[in-house]
Write a protein that binds this DNA or RNA. Structure first.
Lengths: 217, 217
DNA sequence: GCGTTAATGGACACGTTGTTCATTATTGTT
DNA sequence: AACAATAATGAACAACGTGTCCATTAACGC
């Protein structure tokens, strides 16, 4: 019967244990999460079998199938969890206008919600590094880009182009959204050497720069 | 014996038939190429089996293994072929300076090598759409970005930062390289509605624009 | 046309999958 | 502390895909 419920909810929550969840379930899922991340880094996603996951998680194979239908199901559960969290931050970003960005920029301070975003991403950096890396999942990058970057760019975009997008504006959005995902991915890939605040500053600087123009350090 | 030679050369050439290649080999490989592209779009890469490929290509399974060790081998062969072609264009791009870009920009003409690049990409758009899409290969996007975008950005980058990159310059490069891959991916995904010349113009415009500044159409 | 070589179809052992089930161990609750 | 509920275990199962081999047939280059 427990399995029936799980089939209804393909998007499981894993990192924060569900409220009244049995400790055994929480432990199993946490172990599978760690195993998946480790194995993605080692061999890449397609080379991983359910056997591998259970062996690494020190779990019986039946236990895996008690909670997930297959490998993909586990992966997307973890992805959905991160994206849900990001969506909350994104809601806060909606209220940040280009003017706000400029104001913070001249004040020499990073936009708070951007700092919070990089803060959260750093907390999930193990997972993100794995899933955005060369052994990761093709579909996650675009989903993360849509969840955070596209909306961010829409806000920055000049008013009148937000409503009716011309072909050029479409590429304009794709350009900056990909750019933002690019620095996030690079940061995570490098092991998050910069603090979230530094990254927020870098992200803001890159918004108001033009290639070829001298970079003041 | 033929197989032994192929094992030595994991990077096969497929689209342009090798000079003295048996027609049967050329035909088989071309069929596998088409089957792979079609199936990636339909089900995604991981859901494809060698059986599927052979059935779609109307080939015996043994024939597949005559030329490729496995599914990945076929895929990377096709990828390497495209990247090798792109590398030739990239060599021509090395000679384009930021000054050249600006000169062409004020003259209202796109840089020729950029047009050629988009021209080539359009010719391979079926493959690119599949492999850059949501059912594609995680590793190809970054490889294409390194092959074409990173070098392009290095050229645009202000002289003195090309030699010793600070952390900021590192993200600067990541930013613009990802941005360029972003518009390429978007264009291909959309079915290449703009001409290569239009795309070259768009790419150049995006280099010299700053967010929030009004866009003249 | 003839020798060479690729394609075919069938076979094989092996590993992975997803499911089922009885048994054991761990929970949350009284 | 004991109990009922339930998760984990280990074993079994058929089905399928894999990669390799081989003898036979068909297509190719010259």
């Amino acid at each position: 019967m427990g399995t029936a419920v799980l089939e209804m909810l393909p998007a499981e929550s894993l990192a924060p244990p569900a409220p009244g969840e049995d400790r055994r379930i929480t432990r199993s899922k946490r172990a599978l999460r760690g195993a998946l991340i480790a194995l993605i880094e080692e061999r890449g996603l397609d080379a991983i079998t359910v056997n591998d996951l259970c062996e690494r998680a020190d779990l019986n194979r039946g236990t895996f199938y008690n909670h997930f239908h297959d490998k993909e199901n586990l992966l997307t559960a973890l992805e959905n969890e991160v994206l849900a969290e990001v969506a909350l931050l994104q809601a806060r970003m909606q209220s940040v206008t280009l003017g706000d960005m400029l104001a913070f920029r001249v004040a020499g301070r990073p936009v708070p919600v951007l700092v919070d975003l990089f803060e959260y991403l750093r907390g999930e950096s193990d997972f993100l590094r794995a899933v955005l890396g060369s052994g990761g999942d093709v579909r996650f990058g675009p989903r993360l880009r849509e969840a955070v970057c596209e909306n961010l760019v829409q806000n920055i975009l000049h008013e009148k182009y937000r409503t009716n997008p011309t072909p050029f504006v479409c590429y304009y959005v794709a350009f900056y959204a990909s750019a933002y995902l690019g620095i996030i991915a690079r940061w995570v890939e490098n092991g998050c050497p910069e603090t979230p605040e530094e990254m927020a500053r870098i992200a803001m600087r890159l918004l108001f720069i033009t290639p070829g123009e001298p970079i003041e350090l």
